[in-house]
Nucleic acid binder design. Structure first.
Lengths: 134, 134
DNA sequence: TTGCTCCTCACGTCACGTGAGGTGGC
DNA sequence: TTGCTCCTCACGTCACGTGAGGTGGC
């Protein structure tokens, strides 16, 4: 299915950010125009709107733009299965911890785990909607 | 067991940060002196060294000082069991996702999940060494 | 003509410290 | 005296944009 390409103003409006921000992200290589018009206007695939949403979500969770840039530039680093195994182990340890009376300060613990959950939720969003290359 | 209290310079040296940083964290309420000397020197419990390490770790994972401050001020917010249940569900979904061929861009996914794992590891450190109140 | 876009340079803002500098205790 | 600490005000730095302003396409 062929989708119409979008000019920067349309991308910005749909993504809910300023034109300047789309321009800035483009400069960083976080997104790239799929083509240029005859008059050199940048033309974007509509999928960049989803990518911008993902970037904003990760940013709000404390992931810097440089980290995101690196991640996008190295699309296959790391071992996904091993990572899931580590999370599995984390969860078992957490469950064991929850059963002890040793924890008497839940503040930072809850904050850290909530942040981790939100990151995983963001990761699942990414997995559900694979992004085109930058 | 009674531990000798430490002056700010000793805390800084053991925590591997500057005196100024210890002073700054104290001003933010992230740590507090257990007592004051007769000459008004701040005297810290040695446990603040562990707390400083935790703060630095969370900071490096993108958790802001304001978030940490809030977490410390509300030591029992959130439902720990419910949180573990959500992580459990996240993990099941991730496993199901890993089995599909739908994921073709692992870059951000691996980055987000790695960050989540590191946050959980930090959380477990916190649980293993409960911190004194600020 | 009007509104959009390109590109670049410089400025703004916020988080997170860091330096300075005069002070008093050790 | 020397080195440490207190406290405050201002400055520095880095990430993340944002504004301006002259340009050309639509």
């Amino acid at each position: 299915m062929i989708q119409a390409l979008l000019k920067i103003g349309e991308v910005a409006a749909r993504a809910g950010v300023s034109v300047r921000t789309v321009d800035y992200y483009t400069g960083l290589g976080l997104i790239s125009p799929a083509a240029r018009s005859d008059g050199s206007f940048r033309l974007y695939d509509p999928a960049v709107i989803e990518r911008i949403a993902t970037i904003r979500q990760l940013e709000s969770l404390g992931v810097g733009l440089d980290t995101i840039t690196t991640a996008l530039a190295n699309p296959h680093h790391g071992d996904f299965a091993a990572l899931i195994g580590r999370l599995d182990q984390d969860l078992r340890t957490l469950k064991a911890t929850a059963d002890t009376a040793a924890v008497d300060d839940f503040g930072l613990l809850v904050t850290a785990i909530t942040r981790a959950h939100n990151l995983i939720a963001a990761a699942l969003d990414i997995a559900a909607s694979p992004l085109p290359g930058p």
